[in-house]
């Protein structure tokens, strides 16, 4: 379980997050949604310590990440996996080396054990046998899947995902969404997904937080969204004629 309490973040004189609190449960796939520039990525980065929040607390099962020093943070970081918007694979390394990298750094397993884990993770994302390809040789969807495999190689308790569907075709996007959802349930991971993709919201959004103007504007499930009377959320979700028509049918 992750709790965030009253997170504030300002860049220069631009106040991006103005006091956000929320709770993310283990085994749940929680979505953070909002328009471009609404501060979704910033919130995610504040949670994992890539940005320091100006104010507020981030509790990982009760441990306040913001109060820890560099060494203490490493212990929590080993329990965190993250999938980045552009996958962020190390492009000087093969697929296998990418996934094995955290194992090399933080475990004392021998090569055979590590290889077994790598192949298990690759299987899990349906990329068996792609061990020796370089990131440049992969399609966008494959990169995302390798990114997921790398994120789960250390068996994380917490998984953060930034825009899993950006740059993917709708069909591949659904494959990635489902994969994240399955992994979350299977290993009881606390997963936080940032997205502005309405297909994801309607498909896997069991718990949704909507950011607007630096605040948590709304919280609920994908079933609640169709019946919301929050004007800002309505404007965001049903921006297109197509989604408006879909809502009217619900």
């Amino acid at each position: 379980m992750i709790e965030i309490k009253d997170i504030h973040k300002t860049f220069g004189d631009h106040s991006v997050l103005k006091g956000i609190s929320a709770t993310f449960e283990a085994g749940d796939n929680s979505l953070i949604i909002g328009g471009s520039g609404s501060g979704k990525t910033t919130l995610l980065k504040c949670m994992v310590g890539l940005h320091e929040p100006d104010q507020g607390a981030v509790l990982y099962d009760g441990r306040d990440f913001t109060r820890l020093n560099f060494k203490e943070r490493i212990e929590i970081r080993k329990e965190i996996g993250m999938l980045f918007q552009g996958s962020a694979l190390f492009d000087s390394m093969t697929v296998e080396e990418n996934i094995m990298f955290p194992l090399n750094m933080f475990t004392d397993q021998n090569r055979r054990e590590k290889l077994k884990r790598v192949n298990f993770c690759l299987d899990r994302v349906n990329l068996e046998g792609k061990n020796n390809l370089y990131p440049a040789e992969l399609s966008g969807g494959m990169k995302k899947r390798v990114g997921i495999a790398r994120a789960i190689s250390m068996q994380p308790k917490y998984l953060f995902v930034d825009e899993p569907n950006s740059g993917l075709d709708p069909k591949t996007a659904i494959v990635i969404d489902d994969l994240i959802n399955e992994i979350t349930e299977e290993y009881q991971i606390t997963t936080v997904v940032v997205t502005h993709d309405m297909n994801s919201v309607m498909g896997i959004g069991e718990r949704i937080i909507f950011l607007f103007d630096g605040q948590k504007e709304w919280e609920g499930t994908n079933k609640d969204i169709a019946h919301t009377d929050n004007q800002n959320l309505n404007d965001f979700v049903f921006a297109s004629k197509f989604t408006q028509a879909a809502r009217d049918k619900l």
Binding site: R77, L89, F101, M105, F160
Partner: peptide, 16 residues
């Protein structure tokens, strides 16, 4: 590595 978030990926793993 910075602009493609590879450095962030290292940091997240707990690597200096």
């Amino acid at each position: 590595m910075r602009v493609t978030e590879q450095i962030d990926a290292l940091e997240i793993m707990g690597i200096n």
